[in-house]
Design a protein around this nucleic acid. Structure first.
Lengths: 223, 223
DNA sequence: ACAAAAGTGTTGCATATACACCCATGG
DNA sequence: CCATGGGTGTATATGCAACACTTTTGT
C-alpha cells in the first residue's frame, strides 16, 4: 500500500462497550456524560478512541478505566459501525462490544478526568445519546437477548457464587418476560455452564438456596 | 478527542473476505498473489485498505472488484483483528468478512492492476499466507461450519435454482463429513429458507430433480 | 396459620438422528 | 438388467413448553 495516499489518512477507531447490569431486578446500561467535544454534555456508551500502539481490547480496557474507573471487564465483539460521518471530528470506525457486570462488585466512578458524570440507566429510560450510540445500544440489547442462553455472557454479573433464583431473575429482567422457573432450572442444570458448589445460602426470611457458580471452561460464543 | 494527539495518527483499516466456493464437490477458497509490498508475491485473502471516504462495506466491494474483478458479493462480518504488528507498513486493523459464491456464475480475473494472480485453492492445500491470513482463514472456516444451518449464507453459492442434491453436496463438502440425506431434506424443507419452484431439472443420465430457490425474505444471522 | 420464596415431575410436542428401500433414467 | 442417483417413511431419542403442588422459614 501507498502510505502517502491521502485516502488512507485521518482514520481513527472507536472502541465502545454497551455495559449492562441487573440491579434490584432492573436491566440497566452504564452511560457517561461527556466532558469534551464532540457531543460535550451528551450521554454516551463507555468508550473512546483506540491508540495506534494498543490492540482494540487494550484500548477498551484503558477507556473503561479512564472514563468510569472500571477494570477487568470481559467484553465480546458484536458489531462494527463505519458510517463516514458518524463522528463530526474525523472518520472514526466503531468496534462495539457487550458486557454484563455485577454493579455491586464493580463500582464505577461518577467523575473522572474524561467524564463529568456516569450512571446506570434503566433500559427504557435512556436519554438520547451522542454519536450513533442509540442504534448501537439497541443492537447490543438485541444481541444480548439473542445470545443469552448460548454461553457464559452473564459470568461477570455473578463473578462468584449465585443461587438459581438470582440467575433466573437476571434472565427475566434482561429478556423482559417471565420464563418458566422449572424449565429454566432444568435447562441451566443440564447445561455444563454452571455447577453446584455444595454450599448453601442461608437467607433471612426465605428458604435456603443452593449456591452455584459458572464452570471454569468457557463455552465461547462465536459472534 | 484531540485530533493532534500523535497516538491517534497513522492508523488504517483492512477489509478482508474469506471467499469460498464449492466447485466440483470441493470446498475452496479464493486467494490472490500480491503484486506489491508488503508480502509481495505472497498469497492472501481478498482485501485491502479502506479509504477514509467510504464505509467498510463499500471498501470491501471496491477491493473485491479491484483485486479480482468481482462485484455484488454479499459478505458477513465474523471477526476483527488488531494485533499492533499485523502489518509491517503501519498499524492496520482488519475487519474480516465471509462469503460463499458460485464459481461458475461469479468469474474472477486472474490478473488485475492490484494482483498478479488469483485462484481457487482446495481448503486443505492452502499455501502459507501473508499477513495473519492463515489464522483469519481458519477462523472463517470454523465460523462457516458453525453457522451453515443458521441462515442463508449459501445463497450466493446458488444464486438461482438448485436441486436438493446439489445443496446437499455443498453442505457435505463444506462440513467435510457425510450428512444423512433424508434428514437433510427434511430439515431444509421444513425450514423456510428454501422453497419449491415447481420446476424440474431434467438431467441426462439421472433421474430428474425438483428445483428449489432460497426464499426472498432473508433470515439474518446475528453475527 | 400464613406469607414468601425454594424446590420438584410429568406430559405433549417438536426436532434430531438412525436407518433401507423403491423409482426413474440411460446405457 | 444394471448402474447411478433421486426420492421417500418410520422409530427412537432428545430438547422445549406447559402446567401445580410441597417444603422451608420467619412472622
Amino acid at each position: 500500500m501507498d502510505i502517502n495516499n491521502p485516502l488512507y489518512k485521518g482514520q481513527g477507531l472507536h472502541v465502545l462497550t454497551a455495559l449492562f447490569t441487573v440491579d434490584d431486578g432492573k436491566f440497566k446500561v452504564l452511560l457517561l456524560k461527556r466532558k469534551n467535544q464532540p457531543f460535550k454534555d451528551k450521554w454516551t456508551l463507555v468508550g473512546g478512541a483506540c491508540y495506534n500502539n494498543e490492540t482494540l481490547e487494550d484500548a477498551m480496557n484503558r477507556e473503561m478505566n479512564e472514563k468510569v474507573g472500571l477494570k477487568g471487564i470481559d467484553f465480546k465483539l458484536f458489531n462494527v459501525y463505519s458510517d463516514i460521518n458518524r463522528s463530526p471530528v474525523m472518520r472514526m470506525v466503531a468496534i462495539a462490544y457487550i458486557a454484563v457486570i455485577d454493579s455491586k462488585k464493580f463500582k464505577f466512578l461518577k467523575e473522572t478526568s474524561k467524564a463529568q458524570d456516569a450512571d446506570w440507566f434503566l433500559i427504557d429510560r435512556v436519554p438520547p445519546l451522542g454519536y450513533d450510540h442509540d442504534k448501537i445500544l439497541q443492537d447490543a440489547i438485541d444481541f444480548l437477548r439473542e445470545k443469552i442462553f448460548d454461553g457464559d455472557i452473564l459470568r461477570n454479573l455473578f463473578p462468584e457464587y449465585f443461587t438459581l433464583p438470582e440467575l433466573y431473575n437476571a434472565y427475566c429482567s434482561i429478556l423482559n418476560r417471565a420464563i418458566d422457573r422449572r424449565n429454566f432450572r432444568k435447562k441451566l442444570l443440564n447445561s455444563n455452564l454452571i455447577e453446584d458448589t455444595g454450599k448453601i445460602q442461608l437467607q433471612p426470611g426465605k428458604k435456603s438456596a443452593k449456591l452455584y457458580r459458572f464452570t471454569k471452561d468457557i463455552k465461547k460464543i462465536i459472534i
